[in-house]
Amino acid sequence: MDWDLIFTITNVFAIATWLILLFAPRNLTVMTGLFYGGAGLLATSYTMLMIPLMFGLIDSGAGSTMDFSSLAGVQQTLSSPGGATIGWIHYLAFDLFVGIWVARNADKYGFARWMQIPILLFVFLLGPLGLILYLLLQFTRHNKVADAVMPE
């Protein structure tokens, strides 16, 4: 398995989807395409690689089985080319999903695109930190925490 090639292809694909999310018009067609064709395709790629890897049908590049039962096992799994690539695709899929949610929610509440772009870049690069930044920004528009978390 050429893990370097898979890593490169998924990285380029993810960057393209993020550029669309950042700069394209956010109409139904674009957002649906990003959701299914972006996050959905990354999640599918992850699944199509992870399941055979879990059952030993493809080699991770380390010659060992996957072990998520201990920190040492997770370190060993993620240190292999296959484990690191699949782990990265996992991040890419979930970060894009969160980015789509942030963008849609920010649009719904009238946050200007110039305010969204830095937060979306944090979501892309640092995942949970970007989400926290958006939740804090969202909280500034509401009097109660529940209103910020569960919009009507």
Rank of each mutant, 00 (worst) to 15 (best):
I51D: 13
Y134L: 05
G87D: 07
A93G: 03
M48R: 08
T10I: 02
G82T: 04
Y134D: 03
S69Y: 11
L71G: 02
A112Y: 12
T65Y: 06
M66Y: 09
I15D: 03
L133P: 04
I100G: 10
N105H: 13
P52D: 01
L131I: 01
N143F: 03
F7L: 12
I6G: 02
L28W: 10
T17S: 10
P151W: 13
Q75S: 07
F13A: 10
L120C: 07
G38M: 14
Y109L: 02
A39G: 07
M1N: 14
L78W: 03
G61W: 15
L57T: 02
R141L: 15
M54F: 06
L42V: 04
S64F: 07
L78K: 06
L71C: 00
I58R: 05
T77C: 01
W3L: 13
G56C: 05
V30R: 03
M48L: 15
K144S: 13
F139P: 00
Y109P: 00
A14G: 14
V98E: 04
Y91N: 08
N105W: 07
T140S: 11
T85Y: 00
S60G: 12
G40D: 02
L53T: 00
M50S: 08
Y91Q: 14
A39M: 12
F111L: 14
S69H: 14
G99T: 11
L135Y: 03
L92T: 07
V149C: 11
L133Y: 09
L126K: 13
R113I: 02
N11D: 08
S45F: 10
T65R: 13
F94H: 12
L57Y: 13
W88H: 14
G83K: 05
A84I: 06
G56A: 06
T65H: 11
S80K: 05
P118M: 00
P128I: 09
L129F: 14
A24M: 03
G87I: 04
L34R: 11
D107E: 09
M31D: 11
I132P: 11
A93F: 03
G99N: 08
D147L: 10
V102D: 04
L28D: 12
A93T: 05
F13G: 10
M66F: 10
M150N: 08
V123T: 08
G87R: 10
F55L: 09
I89P: 01
K144G: 07
R113M: 00
L135K: 06
A148D: 03
L19V: 14
T8A: 13
M115N: 04
L57W: 13
L28H: 08
I51C: 06
W3H: 09
W3R: 14
V12S: 00
F122N: 01
G38V: 11
F55G: 07
A93W: 09
L19M: 15
L42N: 01
D67K: 09
F94A: 06
W88Y: 15
Q76T: 11
D2M: 01
D147G: 01
L71A: 10
N27T: 01
S64A: 09
L49G: 05
Q138F: 05
I58A: 11
Y109A: 01
F7R: 15
S70I: 04
I58K: 08
R26P: 11
Y91R: 12
M50H: 13
T77W: 12
R26F: 09
T140L: 06
S70R: 06
E152L: 15
T8E: 15
I89T: 02
L126E: 13
I100W: 03
L22T: 01
G110A: 06
L42R: 03
R104A: 04
Q138W: 05
L49H: 08
P52H: 06
D67A: 07
S79N: 08
